[in-house]
Nucleic acid binder design. Sequence first.
DNA 1: AATTTCAGCGTACACTTGTACGCTAAAATA
DNA 2: TATTTTAGCGTACAAGTGTACGCTGAAATT
Lengths: 200, 200
Amino acid sequence: MSGVRAQQKQKTRQALIEAAFNQLSAEHSFSNLSLREVAREAGIAPTSFYRHFKDMNELGLTMVDEAGLTLRQLMRQARRRIASGGSVIITSVETFMEFIDTSSNQFRLLLRERSGTSKAFRAAVAREIKHFILELAHYLESETPCDKQHAYMQAEAMVTLVFNAGAEALDQDAQQRAELTERLIWQLRYIARGANHYGS
Amino acid sequence: MSGVRAQQKQKTRQALIEAAFNQLSAEHSFSNLSLREVAREAGIAPTSFYRHFKDMNELGLTMVDEAGLTLRQLMRQARRRIASGGSVIITSVETFMEFIDTSSNQFRLLLRERSGTSKAFRAAVAREIKHFILELAHYLESETPCDKQHAYMQAEAMVTLVFNAGAEALDQDAQQRAELTERLIWQLRYIARGANHYGS
DNA sequence: AATTTCAGCGTACACTTGTACGCTAAAATA
DNA sequence: TATTTTAGCGTACAAGTGTACGCTGAAATT
């Protein structure tokens, strides 16, 4: 196992994934990608693609997983920052905005495939987001005076708003983003306040 | 003017638009549509398409306008229902869910192109949504004890949640939708409560 | 050392796509 | 009535797509 051979295979597999991410942009969505172009950028022949993925679909699902992983890692980092004494809401929002900024193509993938044309894709993205919501709900339940049900609904609403703000931020400059972020923070406060009122 | 000729032209133009809407579905987004297929379903030769639209893009923007119009008409109807004594939140949500149900392809277009690959599309959808938000903000400002700024942020948050719930509802059966709707209504209450607290 | 496995290649094929070009017939205009 | 306008058609073409098939050489296994 893990010989020169398998190692090289893993390498070009990753090259395919990275090539595909590279080709995502504001003007290019996953469904616009062609197998041939991805293979070209990865430096292999079109037909060699099949040695790694059965389908473009399979590649895509792998990419969703990878983007989800990135997101989860980032939020773990956010939790560390919170533990060492930051505001929950502000730190989370800032961290998420960093994700939009540094991994915009990964975010774009999640954003678009959430309402894309493949049920499997939509399900995969929904799973990632649900993970996110559950984590936040768990936190809210233990740290605030809040019913379990209300904690979940609160978390769901918050994640929805953050995610959507991220989507808007993609098209904006620094100035607009700052305003957007400020509004978002207010909106999260509304929810926190409302949920605590109803859920205790 | 308005002779037999112009009338017929208008008719096939509408046929193109309807053909395109028909071809949208859970598995087929606008960017997957091909000029030829749309022309085929509309019953004209591919090259005749250009007599009506310069581009598939131009068709798409027209479709966004049409979907926005449908939405606006529906919400006007909602306002009438509210005026004759319904709960604001519940009536609005129900009306919106009807829109998802009866015009799902129009909704799908707005939903997807909001984060699609064409800046013009994104802007067009954003415009429709903003219109929506402003209307709601105006209402909230006059009917609840709420700062102008807070009214806007409240409206924005509410519209975001409703829109997103609609997106989720697309993949769900009646049972799940009912649960989703119930959660959504709670979440809107959170926001209303929170905004009224901060904005007065 | 002999054999098997398999990542990557090149060729080939059947399709689909957008659109340029010129024609036709009927409606509109003069 | 004679002329112009134009919605719609058919042909044609270059470009791009996914993928079937068989080969090769080097790594892995026996």
